[in-house]
C-alpha cells in the first residue's frame, strides 16, 4: 500500500524531472530542425521566425544520408556482438577466478578508454592500415570499434559474472544438471542484464564514434557521425544537426525496445523463488 503511494509520488517527481530532462531538449531539437534557411533563428525569439520542412527534405535527399544510415545501423550491432564475444572469456576469468594480478588485469582492460582520442585516431588506425585491414573498410571499422569498446563490455560483464550465485551453481550441480543446464539456470539469469547493457552501450558508442570510422572508412564508407561533424564543424549548420539527430532517434528507440524485449523475462529478483 505504502509502496504504491510512494511510487505515485516518485512517479510525479520523475515526470516533472523528465520535463527538464527530455522534453525541453527534444522540443528544442524539433524546433531547430524546422528553421527555414531564409531567416536565422536568433536566441531572442521564442520560436523560429520562418519554419518549414526544407531541412528535412533536403537532408533526406542528400545522397549520403541513406547509405550512411545503412552503414551505421549495420556497423553498430555487428561491433556490439563482436565486442560481447571477445569480452565474455576475459570477463569470466575476472569475475569467477581469484588470481594474483587480477586487479592489475582489470585496470589494464581500461587502456583503450584511457588513451587520448587523437593518439588512438592517428596511431591505432595506422596500425590497422599496416596490418592490411583496410582492404575491407567496413570489417576494419567493426574490428577497431570492438577493440576500442572492449573495456565497457569487460567491466560490465565482470560485474555480472561476480553476481552469479555460487549456491545456484552448486545446487544445479547437486541436482545432477549437465554443464549446459547449469549454465542456463545459474549463469544466464544473472548475465542477461549485463549482456543487454553491454550491447546497448557498445552500440551507442559505435554509432557515435567519428575519428576512426572517418579515417578508415572515408571516402567510400560514410557513417552518421561524419555527417554530424560536418554539420557542427566549421560550417555550423545547427538545423541540419538537429534533423540528423532526430532521424537517428527513431531507429535507436526501435532497437532499444527490441533489446529490452529480448533481454526481459529473466529478472533474478523475481525468479529467485520468494516474494
Amino acid at each position: 500500500m505504502t509502496r504504491a503511494r510512494l511510487n505515485k509520488i516518485l512517479m510525479s517527481l520523475v515526470i516533472g524531472a523528465a520535463f527538464l530532462w527530455l522534453l525541453i531538449p527534444f522540443t528544442m531539437a524539433v524546433l531547430w530542425s524546422l528553421v527555414d534557411p531564409s531567416e536565422p533563428w536568433t536566441a531572442d525569439q521564442l520560436l523560429p521566425p520562418a519554419m518549414s520542412f526544407y531541412r528535412w527534405t533536403d537532408m533526406w535527399q542528400n545522397s549520403s544520408l541513406k547509405p550512411a544510415l545503412v552503414t551505421s545501423y549495420a556497423l553498430a550491432p555487428t561491433a556490439a556482438v563482436l565486442t560481447l564475444c571477445l569480452a565474455l572469456p576475459t570477463a569470466y576469468a575476472l569475475g569467477r577466478y581469484e588470481f594474483p594480478g587480477r586487479e592489475l588485469a582489470k585496470t589494464l582492460c581500461l587502456l583503450p578508454l584511457v588513451v587520448p582520442a587523437f593518439i588512438t585516431a592517428i596511431f591505432f588506425s595506422s596500425i590497422l592500415f599496416q596490418l592490411g585491414l583496410a582492404g575491407n573498410r567496413f570489417a576494419a571499422i567493426v574490428f577497431a570499434h570492438a577493440v576500442l569498446f572492449l573495456p565497457y563490455a569487460i567491466r560490465i560483464l565482470t560485474v555480472s559474472f561476480e553476481q552469479v550465485r555460487q549456491d545456484h551453481i552448486d545446487a544445479a550441480r547437486d541436482l545432477g544438471a549437465t554443464p549446459l543446464a547449469r549454465f542456463r539456470v545459474a549463469f544466464v539469469p544473472a548475465l542477461k542484464p549485463g549482456i543487454s547493457a553491454t550491447l546497448l552501450i557498445v552500440f551507442i558508442q559505435s554509432i557515435e564514434e567519428f575519428a576512426i570510422a572517418f579515417i578508415i572508412g572515408s571516402p567510400d564508407v560514410v557513417t552518421i557521425p561524419t555527417l554530424l561533424y560536418s554539420a557542427l564543424g566549421q560550417d555550423f549548420v545547427r538545423p541540419n544537426a538537429a534533423v540528423l539527430s532526430l532521424i537517428l532517434v527513431v531507429p535507436n528507440v526501435f532497437l532499444m525496445l527490441i533489446l529490452e524485449r529480448l533481454m526481459k523475462s529473466a529478472n533474478p529478483a523475481l525468479s529467485s523463488g520468494k516474494g
Binding site: 595506422s126 572515408s218 560536418s230
Partner: peptide
C-alpha cells in the same frame, strides 16, 4: 572530383597522418 562527405580539419589531418605509411592512400 570527389569531395568526401564531412569531417573537419582535425579529422582530415588525422587521416593524412594515419595513412602516411600506406603504399597508396585515399
Amino acid at each position: 572530383v570527389t569531395i568526401p562527405e564531412g569531417g573537419d580539419a582535425g579529422g582530415n589531418a588525422n587521416k593524412l597522418l594515419a595513412e602516411r605509411e600506406r603504399e597508396t592512400g585515399d
